[in-house]
Design a protein around this nucleic acid. Sequence first.
DNA 1: ACAAAAGTGTTGCTGTTACACCCATGG
DNA 2: CCATGGGTGTAACAGCAACACTTTTGT
Lengths: 211, 211
Amino acid sequence: MAKSYYNVVETLVSIFAEDKGTIKILLQRKKTEPYRNYWIIPGKVLSNDETLEVSVKKVCDKLIPFDINDFYETKTFSSLDRDPVERIIATNFNVITSKVTQYENMQWFDINALPKMAYDHEQILFENLDELKRRILHNENNILLQFFPHDFTLTELQAFFEFVLDKKIDRRNFRKKIFNDNIVSHTGEKIKTAGRPGELFVFNKGGYFNE
Amino acid sequence: MAKSYYNVVETLVSIFAEDKGTIKILLQRKKTEPYRNYWIIPGKVLSNDETLEVSVKKVCDKLIPFDINDFYETKTFSSLDRDPVERIIATNFNVITSKVTQYENMQWFDINALPKMAYDHEQILFENLDELKRRILHNENNILLQFFPHDFTLTELQAFFEFVLDKKIDRRNFRKKIFNDNIVSHTGEKIKTAGRPGELFVFNKGGYFNE
DNA sequence: ACAAAAGTGTTGCTGTTACACCCATGG
DNA sequence: CCATGGGTGTAACAGCAACACTTTTGT
């Protein structure tokens, strides 16, 4: 390949959602060689008349049945051999959504139990999970509201935090902190569970953790 | 311009250094139109046989008289009109170094007193200063050691923190925290100042703040 | 001796941790 | 009445904020 100043650029869109106290990611099964039947982060090659952000929106429009209005870039990957065929520069974006009905050749995976992934896509994910967790713990950009657009019980939310922190949290201390930080509102509604019904809460729009 | 999947990509390299308790950035004066005599973040167009990281190293080699071994990407910018001539995708990297002798057409600027900058370069800087400050306050990747490879007094270090936080810090509390977090070592050396000489310290290699 | 900057401790406040029992519901 | 999960308070501890005087050097 001749030296040139033109490059192929792609966006990769890592789509995350909360599911039963865990974080899942939506991956796509690759149907062609190379890496046939491996899983990939969905994406799209960038044309020279669109921005990365427009490209991300287009990918989301194909995969998510409602509008996305928030996402963020994590990193750009440019190794010469990340694609065996030609050098493609990949910029990864993270999107948070609700876990929605499934699509052809797509599946939600727990981020702790990823399938065999093509190219450097597992690496790309790994390099961004710590940052994702940091954003969750600090509720940056109201990311918790993106994970929980619906109402939820504090037990569900606690399970999610325990997943992110990978450790048990005391129930009383957790509730104290949540109420103290003023990030949730009472709905008065209850949800039926196997035992005593739990109260449902929603996230405040402007709520931020201290710091 | 015809639609194509080939893009021009450039690296921009924001070079920071500590100077008398402030953060300075090394900018380059543009000598040609457009934006003649405006200031730019130094950079370089990427060829299809080099990675972004290699490109960053090449830029640094031209501008800094010693080896750089640490830098990090901040964000990729892809607006269609960020360059009036053609669409160029820019990935910005941050480098921390020591403030060294000056180069032709280059100058160190206080990050709070930037000159007239070309293109979207001021925007690119702004979008990354908060993150830079966060890394400093948490000493991520031993970034303080990169800012202070030499020895320093606690008064100097405190001035730097006050600059980053944009507020006064109590001297006693500051020293308590620094010693508590175990990130500096005594050298026993003193430096002459206008009053009582201050002790010089160095950063520990493995020292991290709590969190 | 005085000017200039470095060095040093204590107290109150605030947030975090650790810990165990009662309550509401369904079967 | 029992099984299941939800809801609640208090005490010890740690980190953080506020506060002023003494020490070392150069002139």
